[in-house]
């Protein structure tokens, strides 16, 4: 039983050049208690996926999907109200760029209190509720490593450092005891001690409270030790997904290979002073997406067939979208 199951999700957004498919047939699935990693370059649509799942997209954008379910309930056909309730009670999001994700004119405390759902408070009088909320919030602030909770809650977002903002964001995501945490680059720009602390906290919550995590990052090193599954995204297309260990050892898609190679600590055979490998070219802009496999123009193995979009192929419990996969003996 999947907790979150997304199949062939396509998101069309309006640009000055007309409608563009920012996400093209993306597949993600996540079982209860899993930590799943979603990796890809900046601009590959990772954050768009997050916003699609929680329904924080502009209303004009077109979303189509064969399947987008949460515990078997269809998210797309759900009423706005039911969906809000569901996102409030069962999911939490850690947004990329935490300082921007807080209202600049409200104190952090006010915004943290908003994240505590009413059902977590016991039925006291309404004047006792604020205290109950605060007690919960303070507990979680301590968990994420903020000791000076009073000062932090009274501060406006611009008054605290960026990493404090990130920690507060994490506290506000965790305080509602979600079943799924969608963490969009939670450790971006953090120093290493803070980063280890946060990652350890997430791993512990996953083990003790069965918290499922969709971990979005380009920090392969952090993800590699935590995640059980990995989905690789390029330009709004899922290129490969499967078990972390398998993907690491034998990537099937050339892009996965390139991504792994670009993280030097993943390569044991890298001689000193050797040039670091990278794909030639840059990620295309939304206005100039190539047809077919979007990696095509940059792919070292590209051939004529690559102008057709490869359909996802299954191999045991992993899937890949490539006409000419690596590491596969010809059957």
């Amino acid at each position: 039983m999947f907790l979150l199951d997304v199949k062939n999700l396509t998101l069309e957004i309006e640009t000055t050049n007309g409608w563009v498919k920012a996400l093209d047939k993306v597949n993600i699935s996540l079982k209860r208690g899993e930590i799943s990693a979603l990796v890809g370059e900046s601009g590959s649509g990772k954050s768009l996926i997050v916003r699609t799942i929680v329904g924080a997209l502009p209303e004009r954008w077109k979303i189509t999907a064969d399947r987008m379910t949460w515990k078997g309930q269809d998210l797309l056909s759900m009423s706005e109200k039911a969906r809000r309730k569901l996102t409030r009670d069962e999911m939490s999001v850690f947004f990329q760029n935490a300082p921007d994700a807080f209202d600049p004119t409200a104190t952090l405390g006010e915004q943290l209190r908003e994240s505590v759902p009413d059902k977590m408070l016991d039925k006291g009088f309404f004047w006792q509720r604020k205290q109950q909320r605060d007690a919960l919030i303070i507990k979680y602030l301590h968990k994420v490593g903020i000791k000076n909770h009073r000062q932090c809650m009274q501060a406006y977002p611009h008054q605290v450092a960026d990493d404090v903002c990130q920690k507060v964001m994490l506290a506000s995501a965790l305080v509602s005891k979600p079943e799924l945490l969608i963490a969009d680059d939670p450790t971006m720009g953090m120093e290493i001690t803070n980063k280890v602390q946060i990652l350890r906290l997430l791993t512990r919550l996953n083990q003790t409270q069965n918290l499922s995590i969709l971990f979005i990052s380009h920090d392969l090193l952090a993800i590699g030790n935590m995640a059980t599954d990995m989905t690789v995204l390029y330009c709004g297309q899922t290129v490969e997904s499967g078990k972390m260990a398998q993907l690491r050892n034998k990537p099937l898609h050339p892009y996965t290979q390139a991504l792994l190679n670009s993280a030097p600590s993943f390569r044991k055979d890298l001689p000193p002073k050797a040039p670091l490998s990278s794909l030639s070219g840059t990620i295309p802009t939304l206005q100039h997406l190539p047809i077919g496999c979007r990696l095509g123009p940059r792919c070292p193995r590209a051939q004529k067939e690559c102008v057709k979009t490869p359909s996802p192929k299954k191999l045991q419990n992993r899937s890949y979208s490539c006409h000419f996969p690596l590491n596969r003996s010809i059957e």
Partner: peptide, 20 residues
């Protein structure tokens, strides 16, 4: 971003508008 974040926190659109 913070309006999106507030929406993702599960606030309804009117709540998001009046509060943030």
């Amino acid at each position: 971003d913070y309006i999106r974040a507030a929406l993702a926190r599960g606030l309804t659109r009117p709540q998001v508008f009046w509060r943030h």
